[in-house]
Nucleic acid binder design. Sequence first.
DNA 1: AATGAATGAGAGTTCATTCAT
DNA 2: AATGAATGAACTCTCATTCAT
Lengths: 192, 192, 192, 192
Amino acid sequence: MSPRTPEQFEEIREAKRALILDTALELFANEGFFKTSISDITKKAGISKGLIYNYFESKEALIRTIAFNGIDNLLKNFDPNSDSILTKEELQYFIEQNFVILQKNVYFWKLYFGIIVQPQVLTLVEKELMRLFIPLYKMLENYFKSQGKKNPAAEARFFGAMIEGVYMNYVMDPKYFPIEDIKQKIIDLYIK
Amino acid sequence: MSPRTPEQFEEIREAKRALILDTALELFANEGFFKTSISDITKKAGISKGLIYNYFESKEALIRTIAFNGIDNLLKNFDPNSDSILTKEELQYFIEQNFVILQKNVYFWKLYFGIIVQPQVLTLVEKELMRLFIPLYKMLENYFKSQGKKNPAAEARFFGAMIEGVYMNYVMDPKYFPIEDIKQKIIDLYIK
Amino acid sequence: MSPRTPEQFEEIREAKRALILDTALELFANEGFFKTSISDITKKAGISKGLIYNYFESKEALIRTIAFNGIDNLLKNFDPNSDSILTKEELQYFIEQNFVILQKNVYFWKLYFGIIVQPQVLTLVEKELMRLFIPLYKMLENYFKSQGKKNPAAEARFFGAMIEGVYMNYVMDPKYFPIEDIKQKIIDLYIK
Amino acid sequence: MSPRTPEQFEEIREAKRALILDTALELFANEGFFKTSISDITKKAGISKGLIYNYFESKEALIRTIAFNGIDNLLKNFDPNSDSILTKEELQYFIEQNFVILQKNVYFWKLYFGIIVQPQVLTLVEKELMRLFIPLYKMLENYFKSQGKKNPAAEARFFGAMIEGVYMNYVMDPKYFPIEDIKQKIIDLYIK
DNA sequence: AATGAATGAGAGTTCATTCAT
DNA sequence: AATGAATGAACTCTCATTCAT
């Protein structure tokens, strides 16, 4: 008869919040942000339409939260120190980590591509996403400079574009894309 | 004041059709398919809302036409003969052609990425787009086989993914992406 | 830690009830009935959303209670005996009392005008409000009749309308409305 | 078969616009702005829900248009020249005009009171409404000054408040409010 | 061939109210 | 007595599409 304790409420909130985020991520990733209605999300999550606004201010706030969560989660796995220069072994580890992360976060990467290819749509999110990759590019640039490359910035951008292309092809067709062979190919290319 | 000949009518129709397609392509590419309303297109094209349905059955038919036109236009520039095997010189030409086409069709490629990253959205279009690239992949596979590569299919997919990654980075940031350096880098990589 | 007596419970209930009524009055008056949500009230009162329904059946019941309380409180200050006929001195006192009450209950009067100008909205409340003014009108009518006025009913309604107009202007702009001058003007007008 | 001429379209638009404005004014006046939904308006006007947005940007734009139209229409009947000073005869005409206007625009005045008593709701409209009455107050002030009144500003505000009170009582109960008697009473009061 | 007024389904969002605790 | 998560109906607004002219 007595009300739930604040801790109980907090538990409920956390669980429900996570349910909404997970459901929304899956739908946004698979169906696209615009094709996914709030109704779609609440139906799949088994909650009422109103409840989602108890947890998120708006549909855009929802995707922004998802995007930032994803990036946070991502960067935890990298922690690139852009000042120190990578050794070849560390680059190999970095590449391999990339593939681990890719395969563990397919939904997130689908969403990521859905966002970046429509810049005007979610400007804020997109700008933030970009900014988060800057340290990674810096790190790569430093590495290529240390390797005596003539144009380390271009090398870094090529590396990034290549990885992004591989990511995109994988998330679009994870079943048949020869991800292992391609990982090996990239390692051979950069680690000799 | 004399009545128009059937040929003149046809000319007018063709011009209007092209106007609609061009306008829609630009808007779809820059603003995204969902953010672009039929009204946006007719306003920018200076025509009435009804007229667009005189030429296209629906908004989806419109984007499908644009996508197919783009692909057609694209393949004209390649005309890959998947039976004959490329020489190294031909591959170099193929790569260079790729970059020419990329830079000549930025709008189309923006649209392309907008479409493929949301498969469920425009299933038909996406399926067709994929199918059109099969001969190119076949051609690449044959080439890598002729070069004695162990896994020519994976090599082809890697090549395709890499190109796609470069394309995507270029269309998102054509001003600063070091496209020339990267073209050279790819040529060096594959042509030695 | 000793259990509370029934009297203490009653005290707590009364205090909570008053808190809700005061908070709601202020918000209804300043922001309007429709613009004020139950959430707004509970937030400002520092209570939970459920609690308000422990004290009031519905949002409409809440405003109805507020309106009736206000009127009760008002009439206590007048206690017009509609049978006995006012002297000039008593009318002057009545007028002066009016201005005291106006300045002491600005929130209530704001709410009052918010309610009466939208009759269909809160029919019940509005009907009740009207009914409560009948004795005042009767009293005024009697007074004007005793003063030999040809049309005492019209005189009473004019008096009422004038007062209402002054009230409305005051609550809308209490800082700059020259309330004292106007009180004097009315006294001069009716008391000679 | 040929499309309507621009003139025909203009005619249609004007007629429909007027229908929407009239319907909305009646509903806003009688039921209140918040109680009246866009659906209520379109249902009563016999049009589809979407159409209203072909003519007005939003519900607020709709009430703003109605309010400004009403004021425009009103001021046309006054055209107060705030520099020249009214004679007694002109003041009498002004008062009589007031009552003509009141009785011809009952819906507008209901709406007017609905708006001004909820200042926070439609700030913009309300501010504008107020501004439009300034010349009238100025004119009254000048008149009372010319009559040798000690406090012409307060006299003007009292006059305005009294008129407003009468207006409000009339629109709330036009059937029984003794408007003619009260008009005479005011004329007697001010014209002697 | 061309117009744009009109439709209506469905979107995102709000909020009075309920209810398990 | 008290909590706040949860509901669902109703809201404002959008937009692809239709159709009379």
